[in-house]
């Protein structure tokens, strides 16, 4: 697991989420909103199920997908993991029953977050904040796969990248984006915990 990224502030001008009288509030610059929107859209398009023309509309309606396979893309597999560690057949069977609704749930949280970015003021209810934290988490999981973060040492290496003036290649740019989303999610979760403490 990753510890906090509390020192990532200097790299950007967003304000940490906090919990106060108005609820959970944050602030993002237009360029940061644009960046997040792009990331959310990327993950949404990864998760949108491929439409097959010969699909039985009834099975689709009840959420079944008999054509589903274990994802070959590592990032997608991380978002939609196998339910059993050493039983591929049982995992696939479970996937047929559940993957479609899992994808839809994730897309719902990602879309809700993207819509929230369109508002002038970032004031979130606890329910909205939950969708934001889920969406940011999925964005980070995908970025981490692209950055090849396999263990804590890799994560530390990426985390050390904090200076935007050093971003010369795609990998260092991705690392900075990853660190930004990590910092944003951490501040959001702290604000949510504070909100939960007040609401027993």
């Amino acid at each position: 697991m990753a510890a906090t990224a509390g020192d990532a502030r200097a790299a950007h001008v967003a304000k940490a989420f906090k919990y106060g009288l108005k609820g959970i509030t944050g602030y993002l610059e237009p360029a940061e909103r644009e960046l997040l929107r792009g990331l959310l859209d990327d993950v949404i398009s990864m998760l949108e199920p491929q439409q097959s023309s010969n699909e039985d509309p009834l099975t689709a309606l009840i959420g079944l997908d008999m054509n589903v396979k274990e994802p070959s893309d590592r990032a997608l597999l991380r978002l939609l993991p196998n339910v059993m560690k050493n039983d591929d057949a049982a995992s696939l069977e479970f996937r047929q029953l559940t993957e479609r609704s899992l994808r839809e749930g994730k897309i719902g949280a990602l879309r809700a977050t993207a819509m929230g970015l369109d508002r002038n003021e970032l004031v979130l209810t606890l329910e909205e904040a939950k969708f934001w934290s889920m969406a940011l988490n999925d964005v980070r999981l995908v970025l981490a796969e692209r950055l090849d973060i396999r263990d804590e040492a890799d994560a530390d290496h990426v985390h050390a990248m904090q200076d935007w003036s050093q971003a010369e290649d795609v990998e260092s740019y991705l690392a900075l984006v990853y660190n930004f989303t990590t910092w944003l999610q951490e501040s959001l979760v702290q604000a949510m915990m504070a909100a939960m403490d007040r609401k027993p």
Partner: peptide, 20 residues
């Protein structure tokens, strides 16, 4: 139900999920 470690998920977030 087993939850596995990974280097990405925030410790605070994992705890939040278990709580909520």
């Amino acid at each position: 139900l087993v939850v596995w470690n990974d280097p990405v998920n925030l410790m605070s977030y994992v705890s939040y999920v278990f709580q909520s």
